[in-house]
Design a protein around this nucleic acid. Structure first.
Lengths: 134, 134
DNA sequence: GTACGTGCAAAGGTTTTGCATTACA
DNA sequence: TGTAATGCAAAACCTTTGCACGTAC
């Protein structure tokens, strides 16, 4: 947790609880799931604090906001370059930690200053596949 | 428009208006933009009809629902395999019509049945770049 | 001590729903 | 004619905001 000491944010107990819940978390939880988990230890926790903290961490580059789930934002503590695979049925998300080296050719003439990219894979997870087969 | 005759949906004037507005549209409009545009000819048009139609068309595979903009869903009449570049400042979206041939290696062991993928590029468009330079 | 964070509740924006009416096929 | 779509309003849902109070630094 000490690594967060110099990110320019006040380390309140609430924030440490959120950081602790996210650290190493591979579930790509939503704000609501984070709220529920952290509320157990901090019953006074509010959504405003969760969103405030997530926005601050995201702005500082300490976590990622994923838009891969159309229903709600998901959060990812892994800020390394990586991609995702989502089950279109149950919305489970798994990491695809590969660097695909995709680029936008300048020949397309868009003249954008490219700042990043993200590959979303869609599919059906084993559990949902089995359910459908029944 | 005749190409929509056999998609298994009733072709009401409202739906034809939505299809007409989307056809060839490269703006990746939101439901609200579609509603505003189509309302000019059909003042009684309701949001329910817009969403209903977009969901039906999306389900039939005639349009794509994009989740690249965190603020709202965007719709794309181009159902060919292609990717997108979004300006993180003004949310303008442009097409990247290239096939990148990215795949999820089976060696990762996820056992998902992959149904598709989508690459999102992030950047700053020329107009926003210039504004920031001021 | 002060700037920043918290918590509550209310508001905002997008999308969905229920239901009576209408119209395509 | 019968099934499906429309339109309206209300509701549901996720996220943001205003503001008084509290706390990390």
């Amino acid at each position: 947790m000490n690594k967060y000491r110099n990110i320019g944010l006040k380390l309140t107990p609430q924030r440490l609880a959120i950081l602790g819940y996210l650290e190493g978390n591979k579930e790509h939880p939503s704000a609501e799931e984070i709220f529920r988990a952290v509320s157990e230890k901090y019953p006074t926790m509010s959504f405003a604090t969760v969103y405030n903290t997530l926005a601050a961490l995201s702005k500082k580059g300490n976590i990622l906001e994923l838009t891969i789930d159309p229903d709600k934002r998901r959060y990812d503590p892994n800020t390394e370059n990586h991609n995702h695979l989502i089950c279109i049925s149950c919305k489970k998300i798994v990491d695809i930690c590969l660097d695909y080296k995709v680029v936008v050719p300048e020949s397309l003439g868009y003249d954008f200053e490219i700042t990043g990219n993200h590959i979303e894979f869609y599919g059906i997870c084993p559990a949902c596949k089995q359910q459908k087969a029944v």
